[in-house]
Computed example of a mutant assay.
Amino acid sequence: MRGLATAVVALIAVALVLEWAGVTVRWLGYRSVSGRYEGTVSSAEYNATRDVLMPLEVGLWLLSLLVMLVVFIVLVGWMLRTQRNARTVSPVSHHLSAPWAFWGWVVPVVSLWFPPLFLHDIAKASNPQQRGTPLVPLWWIAWLTAWLTFWAGTVLTTSGISDDHDTIQTLRDSEVDSLFTFSLLRTVAALLFLAAGILLSATVLKISRAQSHWTPARS
């Protein structure tokens, strides 16, 4: 279990680094837009910065989503393995069968509570004396809130500015403020993703550590 657990934690760390790199680029973009709007950044400087930052930001977000997909695949494998171990050794019953380790994430409606339920049962079976762990519900709350904040920023606010061509000088204060709000919501989402990543990593390590004690020492 330790190999899979280490892989999950390492991939989560990579995803978080990419997430925060994207947030940093987002604020650099906002700084460039606000500077151009206030007249402290020239048109040439603005367009040069925009040509670098926009594809970089998009690339970082896409790469972070790709890493999240890999995290999902490895995490599902870890969940299947740990549930099988728990069913073999522990008498504690499980609410969900093994296929729900995957389908619980993708089936509409039930995906809102099946993943934490699946993980809670594994945690409880791995250490019956503790009857589960508060890390699981805290992780799930942070995870759902992070995605809600992320999409709220995308849907409700301005996500980018077009090429300069002097049009940026016609921007209204509300549009610049909207771009600030967008950047702020992305930052809040990144903080929530960070919390979710730490909580999930701690849960994975805790369960894997508990199950590692089940393996007899070899002479």
Rank of each mutant, 00 (worst) to 15 (best):
M1C: 08
L4V: 08
L4E: 10
A5F: 01
V8P: 01
A10R: 10
L11W: 12
I12Q: 06
V17C: 03
V17D: 03
L18V: 02
R26A: 14
G29M: 15
R31H: 12
R36Q: 09
E38T: 12
E38L: 11
T40M: 02
S43V: 11
A44G: 00
A44N: 06
A48T: 10
A48E: 12
L53C: 08
M54T: 14
M54H: 03
P55F: 13
L56T: 15
L56Y: 03
L56E: 05
E57Q: 11
V58S: 15
W61I: 14
L62E: 00
L63Q: 01
M68E: 10
M68C: 07
V71E: 00
V71I: 13
V74G: 07
G77L: 15
G77H: 11
W78E: 02
W78A: 13
W78T: 12
W78V: 04
M79Y: 07
T82L: 09
T88W: 04
V92I: 15
L96C: 03
S97V: 06
F102E: 03
G104Y: 09
G104N: 07
W105L: 07
W105S: 01
V107K: 05
V107M: 10
W113N: 07
W113F: 15
P116E: 04
F118S: 02
H120C: 03
D121Y: 08
K124F: 01
A125M: 04
S126L: 07
S126H: 07
N127R: 10
P128W: 05
G132N: 02
T133H: 13
L135R: 14
V136Y: 00
L138V: 10
L138W: 12
W139D: 04
W140L: 00
I141W: 11
W143P: 06
T145H: 02
A146Q: 05
W147E: 04
A152I: 05
T154K: 04
T157Q: 09
T158N: 05
S159I: 11
G160T: 11
G160F: 04
I161Y: 01
D164F: 03
D166E: 10
T167W: 12
Q169S: 11
Q169L: 13
L171R: 14
D173L: 14
D173G: 06
D177F: 15
D177V: 11
L179P: 08
S183A: 15
S183Q: 01
L191S: 09
F193I: 07
F193R: 04
F193W: 08
A195K: 02
A196I: 09
A196Q: 10
G197N: 02
L199K: 06
L199C: 04
S201K: 04
T203R: 06
T203H: 12
L205H: 07
K206M: 04
I207A: 01
S208V: 01
A210P: 00
H213L: 07
H213E: 11
P216N: 09
A217W: 00
S219T: 15
